[in-house]
Design a binder for these strands. Structure first.
Lengths: 101, 101
DNA sequence: CCCACTGGTAAGCCGATACTTACGGTAAGC
DNA sequence: GCTTACCGTAAGTATCGGCTTACCAGTGGG
């Protein structure tokens, strides 16, 4: 589920920066938009994408909306890559021995 | 290095399918294009993207070009996600306790 | 009640990109 | 040497995606 959306979500530079900033500390939309070179609506759209990918979660706090990382989405992507890890390593080692170079 | 390129490479459905098929078994370009609904040049272009992302490696075998997974690229992406894992988990648990629901 | 703050959405623009067909170039078989 | 198989690249097209400005809704304080 988080594969297609997850990888697409982290493919964009600005969006990945937002994700990293959210990971450092749960923040509101306005706070996140402050240091970036894009407008606040753009940040809001990026957060929507991250939300659909399951990488972040939101909670209301008064009139502000606080975003934080959702570890489940991160875990899903990590697990996906893990499925290829051992297989990839074995294939690569085998080829390296054959090829030598 | 493999962050931007890596996530972008796996963001596309067709390209991720190619990647998974390469992971199952090192294959030539023609073999990879057989089961897909895109033409062979498209597969070649996708492999180029995966190559630049460091997710696959190529080796010549006669007139054929065999592609296989490069575990280093996979590891780079895995490590990137790992950096957020503990932090994400802690933040999420804390919020869950505060929020309760 | 009115106004400021916060944030999500709509419409439109523009660059990025995924796909196609057409072509060139190298390796194997007759 | 000529044909066939395999692969990468070029050019062109169409769709997708990120950004902006403008607008609307909900919250809180005077």
């Amino acid at each position: 589920m988080a594969n297609q959306l997850g990888f697409a979500a982290l493919a964009d530079d600005t969006r990945r920066t937002i994700f990293e900033r959210v990971a450092r500390r749960p923040s509101s939309v306005g706070k996140l938009a402050e240091g970036l070179d894009v407008t606040r609506p753009a940040v809001s759209q990026h957060l929507k994408v991250l939300l659909r990918a399951g990488l972040v979660a939101q909670r209301r706090e008064g009139s502000r909306c606080i975003y934080q990382v959702d570890p489940r989405g991160v875990a899903a992507m990590r697990d996906y890559l893990d499925r290829f890890w051992d297989r990839a390593l074995a294939a690569f080692k085998l080829a390296a021995e054959q090829e030598d170079t």
